[in-house]
Amino acid sequence: MSNPIIKQVILFLTLAACAAFAAGTLILDVVIFKDQVKEISATEIIQEAFLFITAALFFIESRRHKAWRGAYILTAGFFGCMLIRELDGLFDLIYFGSWCYFASLLAIYSLCWAAMTPKTMMNGLYALVEEEAFPIMLFGLVIILVFSRVMGIHQIWQAAVGGDNVRLVKNLVEEGIELFGYTLCLVAAIRMRIKNKLVA
Rank of each mutant, 00 (worst) to 15 (best):
C81A: 13
L111S: 08
L26Y: 01
A23L: 12
S110K: 01
I73W: 11
A115F: 03
F134A: 12
P118Y: 01
F78Y: 13
S98K: 08
Y126K: 14
K66V: 08
L111Y: 05
G24N: 04
R64F: 03
E130D: 14
I45S: 14
R64W: 05
K34Y: 02
I108D: 01
S98G: 10
I45C: 09
A114R: 01
L28P: 00
M121D: 01
Y95G: 02
T25D: 01
I108F: 09
V31W: 11
E48S: 10
G80C: 04
V142G: 08
A56S: 13
L57K: 07
E132T: 13
L57N: 03
L74M: 15
T117C: 05
F134P: 04
D29T: 02
M116N: 09
R85W: 06
F78I: 10
I73L: 15
I108N: 02
L28F: 10
L138W: 12
F59D: 02
E39W: 07
L125F: 11
T25K: 00
M137R: 12
A133T: 11
L141H: 07
G140T: 09
A133E: 11
W99A: 10
Y126H: 13
L90A: 13
L28G: 06
R69D: 02
F59L: 14
D88E: 12
V30R: 15
P135A: 06
A23R: 02
I73D: 07
V37T: 11
F59Q: 05
I40V: 14
L90T: 11
T25L: 06
I144E: 12
I84R: 03
T117F: 05
I144K: 04
L138D: 07
L138V: 09
L105G: 15
W113H: 11
M137P: 08
F33C: 02
E48L: 04
L74P: 05
I94E: 09
L87E: 09
L128I: 08
G24D: 04
W99T: 06
F79Q: 04
T43Q: 04
P118L: 02
R69Y: 00
K38M: 13
F59P: 03
G80D: 00
F79C: 03
F33R: 11
S104L: 15
L83R: 00
E130T: 14
E39A: 13
F50E: 03
T25C: 06
R64V: 04
S110E: 00
Y95R: 10
K66M: 07
F33P: 00
R85F: 07
S41T: 07
C112G: 01
Y109F: 15
L128F: 12
G80F: 05
I73E: 09
G124W: 00
A42M: 12
D88C: 08
L74A: 15
V37Q: 11
L74Y: 14
V129L: 10
D92G: 01
F21E: 01
L26C: 09
Y95P: 01
Y109A: 12
G124R: 00
W113Y: 14
C100A: 13
I53Q: 07
F21W: 06
H65T: 12
T54P: 08
A23W: 07
C81S: 10
E86I: 02
I27T: 07
R63M: 12
L57T: 01
M122Y: 11
Q47V: 03
L125Q: 05
A107C: 12
I144L: 15
M137C: 15
